[in-house]
């Protein structure tokens, strides 16, 4: 057996599809955590987005409306978390976990009538002649719009946090809510907006699963993707570029190892491949690369927002 059984252009194209749901959820969670809120409910918001997007797309016949519905669904669910943690000052960890359980149950209920339905197909963006360029055309110019949107979103979040005054305020709130409050910023509202953004992104990620990657609705279909997204934010030490790299690495190695297995490869360059090691490789490689990348600057652990997970009340 040799590597020729695997077509590298199709492989790269499919790894981008496999990575997009985690990427969307992770970039949303990054913004939430940058504002000093730890929302462990990503899984619940993803699955709710998956069914909201699926239902809207099936009912209207439009995948675009489906994605909008997913973003709204995820954001609305996240507001539940927002109200509980920001106004009623509940514990963020417990509330986030509860949000996951709630989302899983709610989505199962909403999805009762949608099992076994095929959603409307999402068209590829038409780049005209660009799509016909050999190799590059397949890799870069034959995707659905969400793939481009997710990458653009990462760039936008990066620019927002780095160059924008509002981004600076968001980071200030995440680093020291007392100082931000003393300067007159509305800590709770900034955080609510961040939570809503995170919910919308998670919802989009979930809908990408149910509308494009699988495509179908199945109860519990996120199967832990939300937790992977949470882990990637930490291992990327809260940097958008790191999130992009982490998500693509994880998705990429997952798809690659499945392709290696399907091709029946038992060794590459003389190194024997064992299925059991291949299966754990997405987790290992992603963690390893992100840890090494952050340790280069020697401040991996210092990069966490200082007020992460702490409740804020103006009286304190």
């Amino acid at each position: 057996m040799d590597l020729s059984a695997i077509n590298p252009t199709i492989l790269i194209a499919s790894l981008m599809v496999a990575s997009t749901p985690i990427l969307l959820a992770a970039i949303g969670e990054l913004v939430v955590e940058k504002s000093g809120v730890l929302n462990l409910g990503v899984e619940g918001m993803m699955i709710t987005g998956a069914i909201c997007g699926f239902a809207v797309a099936v009912e209207t016949g439009s995948p675009t409306l489906g994605f909008i519905g997913a973003a709204v669904g995820g954001a609305v669910l996240s507001m539940l978390f927002g109200v509980l943690t920001q106004f009623l000052l509940s514990n963020q960890v417990a509330t986030g976990l509860a949000l996951t359980l709630f989302g899983l149950g709610l989505s199962a209920l909403l999805g009762q009538g949608y099992v076994g339905i095929t959603p409307p197909a999402t068209a590829e963006v038409n780049f005209g002649p660009l799509a016909d360029i050999p190799v590059l055309g397949r890799i870069l110019f034959q995707h659905d719009f969400m793939v481009y949107f997710s990458i653009a979103l990462v760039a936008a979040v990066w620019a927002f946090l780095k160059f924008n005054r509002a981004g600076l305020i968001l980071r200030a709130v995440g680093e020291s809510h007392d100082a931000a409050h003393a300067l007159g910023y509305k800590v709770v509202y900034v955080r609510l907006m961040a939570i809503g953004f995170g919910g919308a992104c998670a919802g989009l990620g979930g809908a990408y699963l149910s509308l494009i990657r699988v495509p179908q609705w199945t109860e519990g279909m996120t199967a832990g993707a939300g937790w992977i997204a949470l882990a990637i934010v930490v291992f990327a030490s809260w940097r958008p570029v790191g999130v992009l790299l982490g998500a693509y690495l994880f998705g990429g190695v997952t798809v690659l190892q499945l392709n290696l297995q399907a091709a029946g490869l038992d060794k590459i360059w003389g190194i024997p491949l064992k299925v059991e090691y291949l299966s754990m490789s997405p987790y290992l490689i992603t963690i390893l690369v992100l840890v090494i990348m952050s340790s280069g600057r020697g401040r991996a652990s210092l990069n966490a927002p200082a007020a992460l997970g702490k409740s804020f009340h103006a009286s304190s």
């Binding site: 499919s14 399907a262 299925v275």
Partner: peptide, 26 residues
């Protein structure tokens, strides 16, 4: 061609495995 998914239930991964097999001619 046997692909070991190491899961009983993960629709995204099962779907990826099916696509990988189909792309390779199954």
């Amino acid at each position: 061609s046997v692909v070991w998914a190491y899961t009983w239930f993960d629709p995204a991964k099962e779907s990826d495995a099916a696509k990988a097999l189909i792309e390779q001619g199954a």
